[in-house]
Structures are given as C-alpha cells and as structure tokens.
Design a protein around this nucleic acid. Structure first.
Lengths: 192, 192
DNA sequence: CAAATACATTAAACTATTTTAATAAATGAT
DNA sequence: ATCATTTATTAAAATAGTTTAATGTATTTG
C-alpha cells in the first residue's frame, strides 16, 4: 500500500501529486517474516525502507553478545542504517522483523535518481533527517540525565501501543538496561 | 575569516565559487568571550554557527544541576541547537565559549533565503545533517555498549588536541560520568 | 602580588545496575 | 497434545559509578 507512504511524505513537505507518484513508484514492496533480517552486521545497507505493516528492531550486538536497540520501527516509520547506506560501509547493525512485516524499499541508485530529477526530494530528506536527528538528540539527553525507572515510565507513556507489542527483553535493550533490572523496576512501580 | 567556511562547505558538496560567495556573505562574525553564552536554556536559537576560532561546549543542565555535554565545537565545527532552531521552540541547551572565540552566524531568515535561491544549499544541509546524525548514532551505540574507561580511552585517542584544551570536568560531562570517577579511571590507567 | 576561584586527586560510604542462577508461566513448533 | 524454547520474575552476590568531603595545586582576577 503506497498510500501510507504518500501520506507520510506530505506530512513532511508539500509535493505535487505527480512528483509524489513518480517518487513512490521507485519503491518496491518486500515481505519479511517474523525473526528474519532486513540487514545483518557486516552487510552494506543498500536500501532505505518505509514500514507499511509489522514491526522491526534496529540494533547493535556488542562484543559481549549484548543487544542494544537503537530504535523500533512500526507502521509509517522509516528504516535504514544511514551510516552504512550513505558511506557504503559494512553495517554494524541488524534490522530484524519482530512480527511478519511489509516494507517499501528504495535502492540507492533510485534515490540518487530522485535527488537529481525531483528537486523537492532533496528537501524531503533534509527535513526528515533533521527530525530524526532531533529525536536522537532528545533521547541522548534523556538517557544521560535520567535514571532507568524514569526512562521506562516515559517509554510506556509515549509508546503505549508499542509497549503492548514488545517483550520486556526488547524494551530493556532499548532503555539500555538488563531485562532483570527492568523486572525489578516493574515490581517497584506496581507496588505504588 | 570566511575562508575556513568556504573550505568546509567544499568538503561536503561541490558548489560554484559564485554560489559559495553568495552563501558565505549571509554570515556575520561575532566574538564571544570565554565563559559567555551564545545560547541559554529557555531562549529560542536564532542562528546556525560556524566556529573559526576558539572552543564551545553545547550542554544540557538537568534538574539536579548536573551538566551533560552533547558535543564540543572547536575550529571548523558547526554549532546550533537544531531542535530549537528548526521548531522555534525554547532551547533546553546552553552553548558556552570555553575559550575566547569567534563564530560566523547565519540567521533563520537568511538560511531560508539560501534554501530558496541557492538550490545546492538544500543538499549541503541534507549532507551535513546526515553526517551529524551518523556521528550521534555512533556515539549512542558507544555510550550504551561500552564502559566509561573504554569511552575515555577512545576519547583521548580520537581527540588528542581537544583533550589538551579541556579540563577533566568537561571531559567527564561529555562521557556522562562524574569528574571523581574520571579521576579514578585516570589513576587506574596510569598504573598500567 | 595576594586572595579567590577553579581543578584534580583521594578516601569512604552509598546506590544503581549487572551477573548468575533457579523457577514458573507463556508461546511456538512438531 | 507434547516437547522445546522463550519470557518474566525472584534472590543473592558482585561491580560500576555516585556522593560527600577533605586536601593540595594551579589558574584567574582584582
């Protein structure tokens, strides 16, 4: 369903229907089964994606085997490893479906084509990257200045629907704590 | 000295001399004395800046009075609170000179003017924002997956010149630890 | 140059978070 | 339906990092 993609684009910039169509036609749909990977550590990320159904986690697996989740992407979210994609360097990240999912993917060549031929697309990605960056900056401040309990409370408040769809293991990996410690936090909160 | 700015731009995109000049002429120079502020919490950030001399810290002061440094900006680095600047919202951040400094500033209106009249500027900021975002993403992974000692070692390795110019208090605030704990780490390292 | 302020180090007590391990409940696969 | 795997919880011991406070040294500032 490219409709969701079109709506999403128009949330960021104003774009003629014609240009919108041209751009959206560069995307190809792909189905990803639960637990399979859209990207694995060491691969070069060759796509930028838009989730139309399902849920992904984008994470880093450190040398102790510990997963650190950078972000989740459910319906209407974009996913890529922007580092690997833009620099054509081996990715440090995994992108895995946590549910049976559907994404619309655009290749690097087609994106370059869009930059050249659809002038507004440059603005679209400038604006989107800015927003993503602001979000990450806010999260960075949060992570560094607030204790885990507060971060957990804010997470379930901010993403109630996502909380339902995620295991506590995943939420802990996003918050940067162990699932054991998250369990303690939950117990403490429940007693209030 | 707009020369540094021009060189910096050409590191990101290719731009005609004419366009480069037009864009660079939109910047105004400002001198900032050591310890004074380019931006304070609560203000709306009305500029995007390029440091030609000196050193700044961009930081968040949390409710416990603890400083959390988002990044440093020395010569040839850009500074702004992109959140406050793009959304015209009150900033959560302080930007303070740690040395007597000089910056080139562009206002929001002039930047909008550039977006409209100098088509390549849209690309410039898309590319720069992408790079900034990649850097922050890498730092996020680092922060969450490595202990403070390792992060400190990597910091002094990656920014040896900056290390010389910064107090350990500032470095600790960047690493997200107390200066007391940094002192312990340094002692431990010295004994090796 | 003297006084005041900022900086770096150390120690001791404290708190947040991890690690390991065991158990029970929920979910998934054959 | 059954067996295996994943998930959530709990407890106990260990570790990373904070807090407070004291001390000496370096750096500013009047």
């Amino acid at each position: 369903m490219r409709e969701f993609l079109k709506q999403n684009i128009k949330k960021h910039i104003s774009l003629s229907d014609n240009e919108t169509d041209q751009f959206c036609n560069l995307f190809h749909q792909k189905l990803i089964k639960k637990k399979s990977f859209l990207l694995q550590q060491g691969e070069i990320c060759k796509f930028e994606g838009f989730v139309t159904k399902g849920l992904f986690r984008v994470y880093y697996n450190d040398k102790n085997g510990f997963d650190q989740i950078l972000y989740f992407a459910a319906e209407n979210w974009w996913i890529t490893d922007i580092d690997s994609f833009t620099n054509a360097s081996p990715s440090q990240l995994f992108i895995q479906a946590l549910e049976d999912s559907v994404v619309l993917l655009i290749s690097k060549d087609d994106k370059e084509f869009a930059y050249k031929n659809l002038p507004q697309i440059e603005k679209l990605f400038r604006v989107m990257t800015q927003k993503t960056h602001v979000a990450l900056q806010r999260r960075m401040i949060n992570n560094l200045s607030k204790p885990a309990e507060e971060r957990y409370m804010e997470f379930i408040e901010k993403y109630p629907q996502l909380t339902q769809r995620l295991s506590n293991i995943q939420i802990a990996a996003y918050l940067g704590i162990t699932n054991v410690f998250l369990s303690n936090i939950r117990k403490k909160i429940a007693h209030k």
